[in-house]
Amino acid sequence: MPGEYGYPNLNDNDWIWGGTLTDIETTLTHGIRWEGSDATRVNYMPAFDGMFDAGQVAALTSHVLSLSGKAKPNATGAVLFTENCAACHGATGAGLPAMGAPALNDAIWLYGGSEAAVRKQILAPRHGVMPGWKDRLDPATIKMLAAYVHSRGGGQQAAPAAEPATDVAQAPMAETDG
């Protein structure tokens, strides 16, 4: 599950909509921006094409890249970011999984981390769609699938009130031969 361009990698520890077992189960059940469920995960980042001039776009792009150390911070970009982006992506760009706002301060970029790719996403963001599986898989299967995805190396632990399903992911494997 390395993830094609535009599809999130499920092996890493970056989760746009959260990486606990319940988060993954919800995503699997209801999908993302999926018409088939009222409870689907949905958000739409506004397109900023036409709202900024070329200099502002360049400054903002540079500031976004600076959050992960790939460019120098700049004051113009910082102001634009605080006014337009920080509400969802956070002041430091840490993201907000509850809203599906990706972290911008890490090494993982769904649509690419180059300057051109970031500018493109600011001007015309793409909104990927994932179908929910509640009509096609029974709840037990979805739970098993969630445990599997969670087990692929990046699964996050839930807050202290952990759900019992955690055991599934941690069941030890044993085989009898050499």
Partner: peptide
């Protein structure tokens, strides 16, 4: 995958 890039740039 042969390796995995993590959030902080570590390789796993």
């Amino acid at each position: 995958p042969p390796f995995m890039l993590m959030k902080d740039g570590s390789v796993r």
